[in-house]
């Protein structure tokens, strides 16, 4: 194992579906952890965008999720594994503008269909695995030099 592969920190967070009141709090906690460790500002910004979009998607579409944060010397990896309805067509869900958000969510400024594209744009690696009726897992990485 090389130094770059070594996990410096691993922490898990719980995200609850439909809990709009606390939506964004896990992302905020992660941001302060990353800031404290001294991760570069631009990497924190990109991770915060991805984390927020992933967190809000769990709040809006899933039942619950576990977010696992792993910090390496030059990268952060995040996994967001939810229990929920899953995504029937991942390719379509990735298209900018595609959204199944309800009227209520749209009234709150969600449903632009830009969440998954935002994650893609702000990460160096992004994979979605989803099974209808079971749930969705996102894995992404942001690296720096």
């Amino acid at each position: 194992m090389t130094a770059a592969d070594e996990v410096l920190l691993r922490e898990r967070f719980r995200i609850t579906g439909s809990d709009f009141e606390h939506g964004g709090e896990v992302s905020a906690r992660i941001k302060s952890i990353l800031k404290e460790i001294g991760i570069p500002v631009e990497a924190i910004r990109r991770l915060s965008i991805a984390n927020f979009e992933a967190e809000m998607n769990v709040v809006m579409y899933a039942d619950e999720a576990t977010l696992t944060l792993e910090v390496f010397s030059n990268a952060v990896r995040v996994e967001v594994a939810d229990r929920g309805p899953g995504i029937p067509d991942v390719e379509k869900a990735m298209e900018p503008g595609f959204s199944t958000a309800t009227e209520e969510m749209r009234a709150r400024g969600f449903g632009a269909g830009l969440g998954l594209p935002n994650i893609e744009r702000n990460t160096d690696e992004f994979v979605i695995e989803s099974e209808v009726g079971t749930g969705t897992t996102l894995r992404y990485r942001v690296s720096w030099s």
Partner: peptide
């Protein structure tokens, strides 16, 4: 015109 706790969370993150 969009103001609720999730917007504050987003604003704080960036």
């Amino acid at each position: 015109v969009q103001i609720h706790n999730n917007v504050i969370a987003a604003a704080n993150l960036v």
